[in-house]
Amino acid sequence: MTNENNVLIETVDLQKSFGDLQVLKGISEKIYKGEVISVIGPSGGGKSTFLRCLNMLEEPTGGKVIFEGNVLDAKSTDLNKHRQKIGMVFQQFNVFPHLTVMENITLAPTLEKGVPKAEAEKEAMELLKKVGMEDKAQEYPRKLSGGQKQRLAIVRAMAMHPDVMLFDEPTSALDPEMVKGVLEVIRDLAQSGMTCVIVTHEMGFAREISDRVLFIDGGVIAEKGTPQELFDHPQNARTREFLSQVL
């Protein structure tokens, strides 16, 4: 899997500053096709910013992001094409409240990829079935629970047939009883071979599904390794301290 030909996303000395505050201080990392990577670390350490730089929602102030061999540049028109292949799921769901569940899913494929409406709707129904929401297709998001909104957000991203899925604390805004259903959907995705990068506080989940775990603290990858290495034998003092607080 970690063959050089299989690199999907590479960051080279990735830096990001907000004004005087440097949040990312140079992150160089390769993400390989089919990998499931969890990103953990303390709040404010830069893990969400790192994730948001991967699809240029945050413009890096230094270094670069290479996706499928292309250097992503916020000013190039092709960025939209690349973003279509990078699905993203947000902590706050960000479903479109003025569109039905069905329209939420079919909007981007019909608008940006020219998929015929009937075809897009057929696929949307199949995706909704997979997450147990086929009866919600004509509802507006205000009628959905938090867990259903997040599953809709995942399905909406999947409808673009992305090559990678980015998850930004997907269960942090959910009521506890909703978490399991969303994690199950992510688990199914990960097991189907989808490349996933997941920023999460769910340590048990991260340990269970990840191929690799990155511990980001102070704007750098302070430690990385397999879940066993990182959770059972952390080498870095900061990793140990963080894990002792959250586990």
């Binding site: 929602l57 939209n80 292949k85 699905g87 960000n94 479903v95 981007a108 608008l111 940006e112 673009m160």
Partner: peptide, 23 residues
């Protein structure tokens, strides 16, 4: 309009003008 709406639309690959007119 919540900034997350724009971010979600752009992350799906919607152009800036589609994001404005549709979302």
């Amino acid at each position: 309009v919540d900034k997350g709406q724009t971010e979600a639309a752009r992350s799906l690959g919607l152009t800036a003008s589609h994001t404005m007119t549709k979302i």
